[in-house]
């Protein structure tokens, strides 16, 4: 078919008849993403003040046992946190432990169906908003490199599910202080972090497909509600607000890192009671 869109040139780089503030959501999202990318890159790069259980943080940490989610699980020697500590024969200080971890959540979120929508709109203006013209003509979508690689989203899923487990384990350990079990602000921060990451991960579109969405019929084999149907219903429940969980978990993981960092540095004191 001929291109009918040439009939009505709406003018400008972002031509549209829309008169509402269509540019506000993509701008806010771009600012939010950029802030997170800058902060998380810095936090991963510095390689220190990520664990309040380290000897150098002992004076400031008041017996807390908080590990930043950017660094969990800590795989290097000297971490003394969790059963995977030391599996990589490198000492803390030689390289940031975050580099061994962050590729998994980074890949999972970068190929996530929700985040794709968000950054295609905010960073690539493909499109910037609905019914708003795009600044460039060339477009191949997800049919060619690099965006055809979005199809490997499901390969990051097992690592993200494992991270939910590790962060839950960290959250439990956050209730353990040098004087015994207790509860502190950091325990709550890290628990919420694990919960929010779980709500985001369990609503994954690829997980929804893998647990049952790939089937044409849930009941045809057994004539009754199957495990696949129940699993699909569970994932669908969380999937319905995938965007909300994506943003809450993104914000909270950065906040959790910041909290642990500030406690570890002695900038703030963790409020806690030990039973």
């Amino acid at each position: 078919m001929a291109a009918p869109t040439e009939q009505r040139d709406e003018g400008g780089i972002f031509g549209t008849q829309r008169e509402d503030l269509w540019w506000v959501p993509p701008t806010i999202i771009a600012i939010g993403f950029t802030a997170f990318i800058v902060y998380s890159t810095w936090a991963a790069w510095v390689g220190e003040h990520f664990f309040t259980g380290l000897p150098e943080a002992a004076a400031a940490a008041q017996g807390t046992n908080y590990l930043s989610p950017f660094y969990s699980p800590c795989l290097l020697q000297g971490c003394e946190h969790g059963f995977l500590a030391g599996v990589i024969p490198l000492e803390i200080g030689t390289i940031s432990p975050a580099f061994f971890i962050l590729w998994a959540p980074l890949g999972f979120r970068a190929t996530c169906y929700y985040y794709r929508k968000a950054y295609y709109r905010s960073y690539f203006a493909d499109p910037p908003a609905c019914a708003v013209d795009e600044p460039r003509d060339d477009y191949q979508g997800e049919t060619s490199f690099p965006f055809i690689l979005q199809n490997i989203h499901r390969y990051f899923l097992p690592f993200s599910l494992a991270l939910v487990g590790f962060l839950t384990y960290d959250a439990i350990l956050a209730f353990k202080f040098s004087g015994g079990w207790g509860i502190g602000v950091g325990s709550i921060v890290l628990s919420l972090n694990a919960i929010l990451l779980a709500t985001y991960t369990f609503g994954c579109h690829s997980l929804r497909h893998l647990v049952g969405g790939g089937k044409d019929c849930f009941t045809c084999d057994e004539g009754d509600e199957t495990v696949a149907k129940k699993s699909w219903d569970f994932v669908t429940f969380w999937n319905e607000n995938h965007m909300l969980w994506a943003w809450l978990s993104l914000f909270w993981v950065a906040f959790a890192d910041l909290y642990v960092r500030l406690v570890s540095m002695g900038v703030i004191q963790d409020l806690h009671i030990v039973f």
Binding site: Y113, R116, K117, Y120, R121, D126, P127, C130, A131, Y139, Q140, G141, E142, T143, F147, I148
Partner: peptide, 8 residues
């Protein structure tokens, strides 16, 4: 593959 799921 051309759909980039921007949900409009």
């Amino acid at each position: 593959g051309y759909c980039n799921i921007t949900k409009c």
